[in-house]
Nucleic acid binder design. Structure first.
Lengths: 180, 180
DNA sequence: CTAGGCCTTCGAGTGCGCTCGAAGCCAACT
DNA sequence: AGTTGGCTTCGAGCGCACTCGAAGGCCTAG
């Protein structure tokens, strides 16, 4: 188990820390993940509480507007509306037609966000959600989709570890020529 | 050090294996990485030989045509020409104007591919390469770029581990509803 | 000498995932 | 009453990274 197989978040004093660029919008999800991670960057064993915590903050004032959800999730209001337009999420409305989000709605958004963060295309997320809606006799196909995505995630982890090795090598040999 | 912090490549018999979808084109690079990985999916300690092996296969018939490079790297000939057009790589030509690739050229392509696999935008790769060409007084900026990219990679690893946890949870609870 | 195949350039098209802007509604505050 | 601010819909536009196709060159085998 080498340093390559863990996630050295703040850097084990080997490399100077760099402000993280906001590659993906899930700031809140990341923060939750960070809050449960150990010092060496590894995650605690998977259990219900952890998964629950990774999906939702505990202190939720229940009726949330779109901009509050945007702030919590890091997804812009524009994108949230876009997701709804293409049928990726459904949202309740208040009497004047505004979107209101309860705990469950936020949970669904968080789930979609995790899938998107793992590189799953919107079309596949959509397909999965429609299977869920379609009822219990779609479990086989659902499971298939999940296993496929799991494999894709593992492949990406492998790619990233390779890239990390190459970049770290470059850093330690400090700015060497690209082919060297 | 839990199962989450390693990369369970073939799956530790917990989940059935799924044929990996070709998310990214670097089939050969992936194969090289797989060949040096331990059984539990962790990578051996970083050293020169490893990094060298991750960049190039050892048995290279030296004058390579574009389609051979395409097959080795998994990058299409179209994309290789595209990379050249936008100045991402340079390539020698034979007397009749065809592209020929030697070991160094292939090494540069592999390096670029690793950066791309880590999500670095083409523009940033380009910037880095132009700094390398510009000479040794650009080392500070080069190092900055590398550190930035390192941070981006670490962030992505964290995201993927979170997504993996969520997906695995769904798999073990077998096709449960999306918000549950 | 011609056919096949792989190469060349260049420009245009594609797919994905947002991202933005215009025009308008509604509630609350001054 | 008016003004502000945040919300609504809808369609169009954008940025990235390819991806493709057309038109033609060069070399080799039959």
């Amino acid at each position: 188990m080498t340093a390559l197989s863990t996630v050295p978040e703040a850097g084990p004093a080997e490399f100077p820390a760099v402000a993280e660029p906001p590659l993906h919008p899930a700031t809140r999800l990341r923060a939750i993940l960070d809050s449960v991670a150990a010092e060496d960057g590894s995650l605690p064993p998977l259990n219900d509480e952890l998964v629950r915590a990774m999906r939702l903050p505990d202190d939720l004032p229940e009726p949330l507007g779109i901009s509050e959800v945007a702030e919590i999730t890091g997804i812009t209001a524009h994108t949230l509306r876009y997701y709804e337009r293409i049928g990726l999420v459904e949202t309740d409305r208040d009497t004047s037609g505004r979107r209101v989000y309860d705990r469950d709605a936020l949970g669904r958004i968080a789930f979609v966000t995790w899938l998107r963060l793992s590189g799953m295309p919107i079309a596949s997320v959509s397909r999965y959600l429609s299977l869920v809606k379609a009822g219990p006799d779609t479990q086989d196909e659902r499971l298939g989709l999940l296993l496929e995505q799991r494999a894709a995630i593992v492949a990406q982890l492998r790619d990233l570890q390779g890239a990390l090795a190459v970049v770290d090598y470059k850093i330690t040999t400090y700015g060497g020529a690209c082919g060297a």
